[in-house]
Amino acid sequence: MDLSAIDPLVLLASLMVAATPIMLAGIGELVVEKSGVLNLGVEGMMITGAICGFAIAVETGSPALGFLAAAAGGAVLALVFGILTQFLLSNQVATGLALTLFGLGLSALIGQSYIGIKPPHFDPLDIPLLKDLPVLGPVLFRHDVIVYLALGLVVAVWWFLNRSRAGLVLRAIGENHDAAHALGYKVMRMRMLAIVFGGALAGLGGAYISLVRVPQWTEGMTAGAGWIALALVVFASWRPLRLALGAWLFGGITVLQLNLQAAGVAIPIQYLSMSPYIATILVLAFLSSRSGRAALDAPASLGKPFHASS
């Protein structure tokens, strides 16, 4: 075992990359949940985004088009969820699970002819001056545009929810859809928009895994990242800035675990690879143990069906 092989700067830099997929999917789901909808299909939308992005990037040679396609793929799948839960009033938990099961099957189907192919390279941004800063340069300023897009979206969502009128309406709908409906707000329209937004971001997050992090296509490659993103929203108590912190924390655990594997720690790698999941469970248990604080932070109408009967 050689722990000195682990360079803390490289570790921090790869933490930023590892956190990006769950940060994207998590911030999208946060908006969805703030509108009072629980979409458990994040994993399915991520894996669909992963293959859509991969396929289009390979076919066109352009990673940027790939990311666009990934967002579109995730959004289309989310739209199906929206139609089922909002217009056909299906159970949100069951529909979210269906989305995940279907997404895993669909992506495997599309992905068969893409196994073993390398996607076009996605270059990091070339930020003059900043990238040459000592310490901060390699950690913060040598990443690709999606890393910064994720951070920008976190700030944008924070601003939207807390400083904009539309965000206020969205939160009102999430807290009490009947009252919001009585005030004349369009509950279904707002929720559909939130659901599609969440799907697009989950798709982007998925494509970041298949195009940048791995970069390759294998079946079921998101490996629970969608579920970790769901846990992240609870961890963040539905607050965008705290979600970014959580994403770094989980990204850090993943990266550290991979580095320990590479450094040849005397623990079988299977036990090390359990750690992100076990950490998620422990964090969830710890948060919920604080006398129901987490439950208090949740949007009051979360997961409840809305039917304007009168």
């Binding site: 056909l88 529909t95 269906a98 099961l101 189907l109 079946e219």
Partner: peptide
């Protein structure tokens, strides 16, 4: 994988 997608679809249609 087509069968997996088929099974997923079945659940969608049922819920709808």
């Amino acid at each position: 994988a087509a069968i997996k997608a088929l099974q997923g679809m079945l659940l969608f249609f049922l819920l709808g």
